[in-house]
Computed example of a mutant assay.
Amino acid sequence: MNINELTTQIENWAVARGLHEAEPHKQMLKLMEEVGELAQGMAKNNQEQIIDSIGDVFVVLEILSIQLNLDIGECIEHSYQEISERKGKMVNGVFVKEEDLKEAGME
């Protein structure tokens, strides 16, 4: 299945279980739980946990977007439009935006 089909399947699964009407603040807590599990997988270099956690994070984000009446695809597109022309450089293995480099005097 491609990402669009999977997203539709996740939406259908969430609606069938009433998650689309659940409290977004609770879903945000669930997101933090899943991100914590991802961090744990990274810390332990546990590839299976990393894969599962990345998937879980996506599922929780899709459900959160439904609860907030947002389209996750549009959210991703919006973010991509913001970063598509972004300039910067890698510093210690992390991409730092050009404007942040200027603020830190690291131009």
Rank of each mutant, 00 (worst) to 15 (best):
V15R: 15
R17E: 14
Q49A: 10
A22K: 08
K44L: 11
E21F: 02
V35I: 15
H20A: 11
E48P: 01
P24K: 04
N12E: 15
I50N: 08
T8I: 14
K26S: 01
E48I: 11
Q49W: 02
E33A: 03
L19G: 08
N46R: 07
K26H: 00
I51F: 08
M42G: 03
G41M: 04
E21A: 09
M42S: 07
Q40M: 12
T7R: 12
D52K: 07
K44N: 11
L31I: 03
Q40E: 15
T7A: 08
E37I: 01
E34G: 03
G18H: 09
D52F: 03
I10H: 01
R17F: 01
E11A: 13
S53M: 01
E23W: 05
A16V: 00
I51K: 13
I50K: 05
W13D: 15
L29C: 00
G41T: 07
T8E: 15
P24T: 12
H25L: 10
I10C: 06
E11W: 07
T8W: 09
A39I: 12
V35F: 00
A43Q: 12
L38G: 03
I10Q: 06
N46K: 06
I51P: 02
K26D: 00
L38T: 09
L19P: 04
W13N: 15
N12C: 06
M28N: 04
E34Y: 01
A14H: 02
A43D: 14
E48V: 12
P24V: 11
K44R: 08
W13T: 15
A39V: 12
V15C: 10
G36K: 06
H20L: 05
N46S: 07
Q49T: 11
S53D: 03
A39E: 14
E37K: 02
H20F: 01
E23M: 06
E37M: 06
E23L: 05
M32W: 02
L6H: 14
K44S: 08
L38I: 08
N46W: 10
E37S: 00
K30L: 03
L29V: 09
